[in-house]
Simulated assay, not measured.
Amino acid sequence: MSRAVEPPADDELKRLQIELEHLLGRCLLKLQHYEGLIKAIIADHKISGSVHDLEAIREERAGATARKTLGSLVGDFLGSCVVANEIDTPTEATADSSEVANSFSSWIYTEYSDADFARIQSEMKELVDLRNNLVHHFIDQHSLGTLDGCRSGRDALVAANSRIDEHLKQLKNWAEEFLQVRRILAEFLGSDAATDFIVNGIRPDGTVWWPGAGIVYALRGAARRLAVDGWTSLAAASKWIAEVQPEQIPKRYGCRSWHQVVNEARVFDLRYFEVDGQRVACYRERTKCTANGSLPA
């Protein structure tokens, strides 16, 4: 009965070294896939600005994200894409801002309990450490010129490959959730209700977000064209708006008159002047110093 012949040590060493190269390459390719996916999520999950500039803003965010390391990306991801319990959500623009019209803000995130968030944070830090060890310290940690060193290196890479797969699977799940929300958001943005809210500030329930109302934007436009010494005749403004933006009428916003629009919006001061013996209602943009107080004499 013949005995199995053990392969020469040199041949076994070369075989193990080739196997190590393949395993290490596989790990690094998966890590690059992970980095690419997390960059895409970070670039797209949160955006705000003028509706006319959203694409440029998105490209700028993507460009800034592309230059970051995995450690920085994980830092950006945690607390923004994945959050713990209640977070500080963006607040609506204040009523004295003249730049809220035609603006858009979107923030997609997944919320976890404090305990789960802490676990995810620890696991993602582990992945960063794993990546850094593979890239910078793997050769130092294993004597790849010896059989024992190659075998320990192989075991470490097999374990690393399995751990990276787990992280990649989790990230893909998050990415699918974000994509689903984006699809729902895109469907909403293509609806008449979304157009009415974004352009006119009219919410789906019929209430009005006055700082972003289209009729308020129209009044500002009329003031820029017709103001005299900072004040604009409300009658003249309504006539001008009827010519250039006829769809902007008080009834659309649940108001009976232009006077009611000015009062409901709370972003204008209203004052009456005597002009040729007639009492004329005029308005002007409310300044910060008078927004919460009375009109100065």
Rank of each mutant, 00 (worst) to 15 (best):
A175W: 01
G201L: 01
W209Y: 12
S103C: 14
F178W: 07
A156M: 05
L147I: 12
E60Y: 03
A66Q: 11
R131D: 08
L185M: 14
C27R: 01
R15G: 05
N161D: 14
D205H: 04
R58I: 01
S162F: 09
M1L: 14
A40H: 06
V275F: 07
G145C: 04
V261M: 04
A235W: 03
G49H: 04
D44T: 13
G212P: 01
V82S: 02
R279W: 10
P246E: 04
G206R: 03
I87M: 13
C27N: 08
S257Q: 10
H136Q: 07
S48T: 13
K46W: 10
A186Y: 03
D88Y: 09
V280S: 03
T232V: 08
I108G: 00
G149H: 06
R131F: 07
I139R: 10
W240K: 03
Y109W: 13
D140E: 12
W210L: 03
I215M: 00
A56T: 14
Q278P: 00
V135A: 14
K68W: 04
P246T: 13
T89A: 14
Q278L: 11
I87D: 06
K251Y: 05
H142N: 10
D276T: 10
C150T: 02
L171P: 08
Y109G: 00
L127D: 01
V5L: 15
Q245I: 10
S238K: 02
R131C: 11
A43P: 00
D229L: 08
I47V: 13
A235R: 06
T146H: 04
A43F: 05
N102T: 00
G49L: 05
E35V: 02
E126D: 15
C150H: 03
V181D: 09
D10C: 06
I202K: 05
A242E: 11
H22M: 08
Q170W: 11
A291G: 09
G206P: 07
K251P: 01
A56N: 07
V199T: 09
A281I: 07
R26N: 14
A66G: 06
M124S: 06
A222W: 01
W209T: 13
E187L: 14
T290Y: 01
V74C: 08
I38L: 11
Y283P: 00
S2K: 15
Q17H: 07
G25L: 07
